[in-house]
Nucleic acid binder design. Structure first.
Lengths: 340, 340
DNA sequence: ATGAAAGCGCTAACAA
DNA sequence: TTGTTAGCGCTTTCAT
């Protein structure tokens, strides 16, 4: 393997010094056009490719930002990442993705790995398991931008981009009520994550505002997955006073609920079902799934904008903003109750 | 922002030299247990975090490998990545993901970015647009491992992990024939990608082997997406002598086909539909979609293994292997033709 | 407009 | 077992 070309090779070839080459290559103003042109040409001729590692080591800036998400397999997170990349690419920032797979341990590892890789900032959405957030504190201590999105934590005093989850829970419940459902159950996660708590509050508030009783037996705490959805629906529908609609913690859970309901011949919209996230499949299943759109694209864009703002100031945390997006109800067949 | 702790700080504190610290931290054998323990303790006390950049610059190894995929939103690619990560993590390699979004330009950018970031190797699945592959040649020139998977290119003399796509095309077609369909159409991509050509050959071979005519009008060349599926199905079903089954280029396309067929009251399995990739939604749509499983998990695992083997040898390309996996038919409702 | 030189944090060959 | 020292490839301050 022949040695890679460095700025030294270019300098030697042109009988100038590395500093000149460095400046010519990085668009430094005080450089003659002749020199600049010669350098650029020689660089191309020698097939020069800069070593970002070296420049990062010296400058302390890698122009790489790390994004930690539970999983990239969810369309929701994939979309956010896509928009973060998009919003950042013009500024020369690259994104590297780290998946926590809903495990705190992986998440801690992720923060460490990214920090050791000297990323210029981190954006994260927490795993379901995460309670203690001290691993994130290290990022702040290093004075690097940390932005939390969707699954955030109030303890950490950092900028956030979230959905108004209280409203989301409220709207989903209200939608079911508007459609004529009266006995509305909730299948959600046991984990103490703010957004799920907020949704729960929204759910309860909507019931209360409509003078409907809050039945604790109607609230199933479990996981969020197709399997959990099946389980939750099964449990609910075996009750004596069974619900006539189910609000599921996310679309995967809602999918499990629907599958179960179909099996026991309570096919939606007979029993109403609504999910969260507007996952890509939700429009295609039968009956297709009503859901709450959480606007991942907008969320990603806002994260990117916020990051750019933070790196622009000497103290990234001098002005901590919290952006809250409005949820939207996506009305489909699964909540289209017919008048009885 | 207070300065970060370096090995110099640890050395000074302990009155030893940086080399000792470096050795103690990296598990060098010839070091006394006392020193090692003291160093590790002091490192923890000073909240030391290594700067991988510096060590990478010096050693020439970043222990990061880059993966280029068309898009992470497809479950197929997300699964591959997941298994690559899994297969590599015990060896201390980290994965960074670059999405080409099916554009050559992005792909070229991706190779450059990853190379400049000094990754230790690259795994890639090519974009639909890619014809010229010279950007990949640079990786080989640098003598870094390059592994191509799924969407590969024969020009590049590198290890590959692929599905037997000829067989996949053949099996899908044979399955439709076995189910009683006789007039089988194909909706595929215009792009000259090997795997799609192979499938086309398999499709034709299966028809020929069953003494069924090959009707060129039954082969629609377009894109691969829900929209393209709708379009292809529409075009096919408007024909005078319309097909009784459609083989779609991937599951997204198949989904579009199904939607169109339902609209025009030719709901599968009346007209048979089969896709490729076993995307996550295919089991949940109605009718649920028969498809070809391409074993992404195995593909990812093989990529990881191959990489580890390649980095272990002084010349990574001394023994170029091509791993070919066997496709599996996943039989579901969309091809469940009833005897007429 | 260009050059000289120090140094980012770490590793590793050579010495002791 | 530990220390000395020379870089890895680049940026940047201070001269010129």
């Amino acid at each position: 393997m022949k040695k890679k070309t460095t700025i030294y090779d270019i300098a030697k070839e042109l009988n100038i010094t590395v500093s000149t080459v460095s400046r010519a290559l990085s668009g430094f103003p005080a450089i003659s056009d002749t020199t600049k042109k010669a350098v650029v040409e020689m660089a191309k001729k020698l097939n020069y490719s800069p070593n970002r590692l070296a420049s990062a080591l010296k400058s302390g800036k890698t122009h790489i930002i790390g994004v930690i998400v539970p999983s990239v397999q969810a369309y929701f997170f994939a979309s956010i990442i896509h928009c973060i990349e998009d919003g950042l690419k013009d500024s020369g920032y690259r994104v590297i993705i780290y998946q926590s797979n809903e495990s705190v341990e992986n998440e801690i590892n992720g923060v460490r790995t990214l920090l050791e890789a000297q990323v210029d900032g981190i954006m994260a959405s927490m795993s379901l398991e995460t309670q203690d957030v001290s691993h994130f504190a290290e990022i702040i201590k290093q004075n690097k931008p940390l932005i939390l999105f969707d699954r955030v934590n109030a303890e950490l005093n950092v900028p956030t981009v979230t959905l108004d989850d209280y409203r989301a829970g409220y709207m989903a419940t209200q939608h079911l009520i508007d459609q004529g459902y009266k006995k509305i159950a909730l299948v959600t996660t046991v984990h103490q994550i703010k957004i799920f708590n907020d949704r729960l509050k929204g759910y309860k508030a909507a019931l209360a505002d409509n003078n409907l009783p809050i039945n604790d037996d109607y609230i199933v705490f479990g996981g969020l997955s197709i399997k959990d959805g099946r389980f939750g629906a099964g449990k609910l529908m075996r009750m004596e006073n069974k619900p006539d609609a189910i609000l599921a913690g996310d679309d995967f859970t809602a999918l499990g609920v629907i599958k179960k309901l179909k099996e026991i011949n309570e096919t939606p919209p007979e029993v109403g079902v609504i999910g969260f996230a507007n996952e890509s499949f939700s429009a295609y299943i039968t009956p297709n799934l009503s859901t709450i759109d959480q606007h991942p694209a907008q969320m990603g864009t806002e994260c990117a904008k916020m990051f750019l703002k933070m790196v622009g100031q000497e103290n990234p945390y001098q002005d901590i903003q919290h952006i809250v997006l409005d949820p939207t109800v996506v009305e489909r067949q699964s909540t289209g109750k017919l008048p009885s």
